[in-house]
Every structure is written in structure tokens, then in C-alpha cells.
Design a protein around this nucleic acid. Structure first.
Length: 433
RNA sequence: GUGAAAGUAGCUCAGUCGGUUAGAGCACCAGAUUGUGGAUCUGGGGGUCGCGGGUUCGAAUCCCGUCUUUCACCCCA
């Protein structure tokens, strides 16, 4: 009986695995060089853990299960709750600031579509315990640091930055009540996805008065931080939020990534989760969904039963990123093919035993080496070496019997030289084994 | 969860009006080639035509259901 792969999952054959490893290696490298330390948690948690922050809709999109002891568990759809739990558990002994990263495998039971599967990998970086917006800027910088490293330019991608604090202050000054903020966030978040007229209409329905709707609309249409003063009536809360945004942009300019960044008041982010700076990374064409998103969520630890310590974080999934990199031709160009250091061959069956010995010597010195399992002629063996993309071939033939010499053939140039076996081994650069 | 389109070899696809033993290219394997690879030529293996049911003398082809994929919604932690 043939069993198909499960809906929304991927099989990673060697070529796909190479892509995945390359991507994850890049994430880890950039995290480490930006001063983050890696952590991870279990792949499942108590179901309750994921119900704290979120409503029933999210719970419906969880893969949940019951263990034999009747415990309700769920496969993690995100790692942030685990992070909160882990940090809370040791909050008194952890040196601050806490700069941690992780590349968890996550599962969400959503309907699969372009750039969204049911199982995926997500790079997460978080800074906990730093109130200053420098932490937000650093998070954004680290995100760009990776995207820039893999070859994406400001022409390809844009970091759109806004502030929940600013938006809240504006909405309150317009006369929206505190209780209605969350509902409005959800609507404003859709602004770019809906036709302009539909959006205006829905906004008017939500706020009731045309004057309020107009003021919100004019704020949402602001193209730069400087224009905020013209669109809305400033008050001290708005002023503070604006200053914070300006600080973030100034920091990013100093770090040399200003070209990637743009202020965009239509960046709101879905749920009532964020409390300060929010941002999303989008492809310039805007055809794909967001590549990454993040922001400040100062209530996170408290919501999970810990102290009120501030936090800011970013998540980047592998699916959309891969689509974008493929589109830009940045994947094949950077991805190294499988490369074998040596392929060991014999010109006479007499030397079959020596072939194993030479391969074993190379391997024990940290070099990758293969040989053919078939007892074919040299021609066949070299063909196999080519198929495995071997850098060099070692040919063991009559010269070995006569004077202990190996023929080393460079598979790129086709040139070949005779070397003494012992000299060859002692001449190898030491490698990590 | 809603709607639309698609599904034939490992991959990309052809397959006439419903008619005999379902084809091609690429990939794979082998030979040409027992001291020199990538190329070429020749040959070979590989199919429950997604699955189940129906109509028919006869179904890859028509009908229904179902699964999967893709796209658009919902949602996006």
C-alpha cells in the first residue's frame, strides 16, 4: 500500500536539504555575530500554553493530541510561548540583556497555499529586558544583516516600520475608546489588502463618524514621520511615540541600513500582542506575503505568569524567503553543490584492498572520500567520480606496485601527477575530524 | 472552514470522436569502453492513467464521490 506524504508537509531530498541547511546556517551565523545565543524547547507543549494569548481561532489551527495520561498537548505553532516559559523559569539568574535566537520547526493546521505550509522552519530572535528602542533597532538590523548577506538589496525588499504606541495614541486622540482599539487594529492591518473604497467604508462603520474616519485615514496615508504633525493633532503621547520612532530610524541610519527601512503607518500586525515598534519585511513587488515580521511585546513574560519585563522579537519563515530567493536567482548561485574531496579508484583489481586503505586514511584525516562498489574498469570509476562531483581522483595502478606512487588527478583541470603515498598523506593539511 | 482549476513513468508533458498491447523528452541503469571522467550513440527497466464507484459491448477519455496539489478567500501567532 502506497502512503502519500501528509498534506502541507515537505520531503527534503538531498537537494532540498541542502537549501534548508544553507538557509538555517545563515540564520545561525548572523544570529551569533549579532550577539545572540541559541536556545530550543520541546516540539510539543501543554495545549493551554497556546491558548493564553489567543482565541479559539488559533486553537483550531493547532495540531493537538492527548497523551496516554490524558494530558492535552499541542505541537508548537510558534516558539514565543516556550521562550516566555523558559525565561520566566530562570528569570532571576539569567544575565541581562537576554539576546536569544532559535530556529524551531513549527506546525500549523492551516490550509496550505503559496508560501504557507503546515510544517515549516522559522528563525526567531528576541531581546528581553531592554526597554530602550535601541533593542528594536538592533533586531531590525540583525534581520537586515541576514537578508543583505544572502544578496537581497533595498530594491528587492523593504522593512516597513511603525509603532503600535503611535497608532494607539492617534486613535485615542481621535476619540476612539480604549476598548475598541483591538478591533480597529485588525481592520487597519487589512488596509493594504482591501480595495481603498471597501476599506473606507468598513472604517466608517467601525468608528461611526466621518470626521474620525477621515482623520484615521489621513494618518494611515502619511508617507514619512515628518508629515504626522500635518495629518493629526499632536499631543504628548503622540509626540513621545514619534520621538521613539525617530530614534529607531536614526539608529538604523547609523548602522548603515537606512536604505532598507521605511516608515509605514499601515503596518499594524494582526493581534493585540504588540505594544510598541512593529515591522514587517516585504518583497518590493508586494506579490508575496510578508517575509518576516516582529515588534515589541512588553507584556509577554507577565502574560505567562512572570514579571513585567519588556521584550522585542522577530520571526522569519523559510517558505516565503525561499520563494523570494528563487525568484531573484539568489539560491542556485550561492548554494554549493555536493562536493567530494577525493574519489579513490584502481586501475587493476589487484589494488582493490589498497583502495579501501587509502579511502580510510583520507577519511580519518577529515577528508570526504568515496570509491566505487562496482568492479568496473577505470573509465567507469572516473565516470562515477564525476557524477559525485569529486574534486580529485586518486588512481592506484602499476606505479603503486613499483614505487609506492599514487596518481592524483585534478577533476577540474584534468591534470594528473604522481606522488609518493607516504609523502601524499603527510602533505595533507590537517582537518577537523 | 469557503470557492475555482488540475492530477497519465522519478520530472515536464502528448494521448484524435469512447475503440487493439498508453507514448515522447529529461532522469535512472547497462553496453559501446579491462589505465582515464563530463560528450555521443545503442539498448533496458520503470504505469492499478490519484483512488473508489457509475454509464457503456468497450473508459486515461463521459458522470458522481473522494484524496492530493495549485490559486483565490478566511486567518496569519
Amino acid at each position: 500500500m502506497k502512503i502519500p506524504p501528509v498534506k502541507g508537509t515537505r520531503d527534503f531530498y538531498p537537494p532540498e536539504m541542502a537549501v534548508r541547511n544553507w538557509m538555517i546556517d545563515g540564520w545561525k551565523k548572523v544570529s551569533v555575530r549579532n550577539g545572540f545565543e541559541e536556545y530550543d524547547g520541546p516540539i510539543f507543549e501543554y495545549l493551554k500554553m497556546f491558548q493564553i494569548k489567543s482565541g479559539d481561532e488559533i486553537v483550531e489551527q493547532l495540531f493537538s493530541l492527548q497523551d496516554r495520561g490524558g494530558r492535552d498537548l499541542a505541537i508548537r505553532p510558534e516558539i514565543t510561548p516556550t521562550l516566555a516559559r523558559m525565561v520566566n523559569q530562570q528569570i532571576n539568574s539569567l544575565p541581562r540583556p537576554i539576546k536569544w535566537f532559535s530556529v524551531p520547526r513549527l506546525c500549523r493546521a492551516e490550509r496550505p497555499q503559496k508560501g504557507r505550509l503546515r510544517e515549516f522552519f522559522q528563525w526567531n530572535i528576541d531581546i528581553i529586558g531592554v526597554d530602550s528602542s535601541v533593542a528594536d533597532a538592533e533586531l531590525i538590523f540583525t534581520t537586515i544583516d541576514y537578508l543583505r548577506m544572502v544578496g537581497l538589496t533595498p530594491k528587492d525588499i523593504q522593512i516597513r516600520i511603525s509603532s503600535r504606541k503611535l497608532l494607539a495614541a492617534v486613535l485615542l486622540s481621535v476619540g476612539i475608546s480604549e476598548d475598541d482599539l483591538d478591533v480597529l487594529y485588525a481592520l487597519l492591518d487589512k488596509k493594504t489588502k482591501l480595495p481603498a473604497e471597501t476599506f473606507e467604508q468598513m472604517l466608517l462603520e467601525k468608528v461611526g463618524e466621518q470626521a474620525k474616519a477621515d482623520e484615521i485615514s489621513s494618518f494611515m496615508a502619511v508617507a514619512s514621520i515628518d508629515e504626522i504633525g500635518q495629518a493629526v493633532t499632536m499631543d504628548s503621547d503622540i509626540e513621545r511615540a514619534v520621538v521613539e520612532l525617530e530614534t529607531v530610524f536614526a539608529s538604523l541610519a547609523v548602522m548603515g541600513v537606512a536604505e532598507y527601512c521605511v516608515f509605514d503607518p499601515s503596518i499594524v500586525r494582526g493581534l493585540a500582542y504588540y505594544t510598541g515598534i512593529v515591522f514587517e519585511v516585504h518583497g518590493a513587488t508586494g506579490e508575496l506575503r510578508a517575509i518576516a515580521g516582529g515588534g515589541r511585546y512588553d507584556n509577554l513574560l507577565r502574560d505567562f505568569g512572570g514579571p513585567a519585563i519588556s521584550a522585542t522579537g522577530m520571526g522569519m519563515g523559510d517558505c516565503v524567503l525561499e520563494l523570494l530567493l528563487r525568484e531573484k536567482g539568489l539560491l542556485d548561485s550561492q548554494l554549493g553543490k555536493r562536493r567530494l574531496d577525493y574519489f579513490v579508484t584502481f586501475a587493476d583489481k589487484l589494488f582493490g584492498g589498497t583502495m579501501y586503505e587509502v579511502a580510510a586514511e583520507l577519511r580519518s584525516r577529515g577528508y570526504s572520500a568515496n570509491f566505487s562498489y562496482k568492479l568496473g574498469g577505470l573509465s567507469k570509476q572516473l565516470k562515477e567520480a564525476s557524477a559525485q562531483n569529486a574534486a580529485k581522483c586518486i588512481i592506484i595502478g602499476q606505479e603503486f606496485a613499483e614505487s609506492n606512487q599514487l596518481a592524483i588527478k585534478d577533476m577540474t583541470t584534468g591534470e594528473q601527477e604522481l606522488v609518493d603515498y607516504g609523502a601524499f598523506l603527510s602533505g595533507l593539511e590537517p582537518r577537523d575530524t
